[in-house]
Amino acid sequence: MNHATAVKENQSISVDSRAGKYLTFFLASEEYGVEILKVQEIIERMPITPVPLTSKYILGVINLRGKIHPVMDLKMKFGMDPTRMTEETCIIVIKTSALMMGVLVDKVSEVVNVASDDIENTPSLGTDVNTEYLLGVGKAGGRVRLLLDIEKVITASDIIHLKKAAETSVPEPKAETI
């Protein structure tokens, strides 16, 4: 999170802080990367208990060795189609100083070392695409990997839905039947 702001301020200065090992995974056909240090573990998909009144992209909660952690569908979070469960679908458990959360991805790819020379700043893509979650773009080995600021992704404040519903006072579709 700090990386991005630091970069904006000093475009020309080295981007060392973003270099390092990344775990890469696929969302549809796009390859993304998260800093390996923030990855707690990768688990197979398991039964997820939905939690009412949360955002659509929050799939629910799972039991990870006796602790309960929320799981989000990363594709829905980024405005893509919901993830279809396949054999390769899995949950990457992200651990930050503040919280732990699982993110559902289509397929885990590999661990790569991204050197600072290979990192480019995210180009401005217009208003359609929200690039605030991107640290930059890694281009090692001729492949484009979108490096995620995962901490920013999972600490987004729109997890609980009710507040919104109450504030807007426009009845949600599901409330209309009441």
Binding site: P52, L53, I68, H69, I159
Partner: peptide, 18 residues
């Protein structure tokens, strides 16, 4: 048990249980 952080204060849920 508490639901994981970040999802802890859903107003209708008092907690979770395995």
């Amino acid at each position: 048990k508490l639901l994981g952080k970040g999802i802890n204060n859903v107003p209708v849920v008092a907690g979770g249980a395995i």
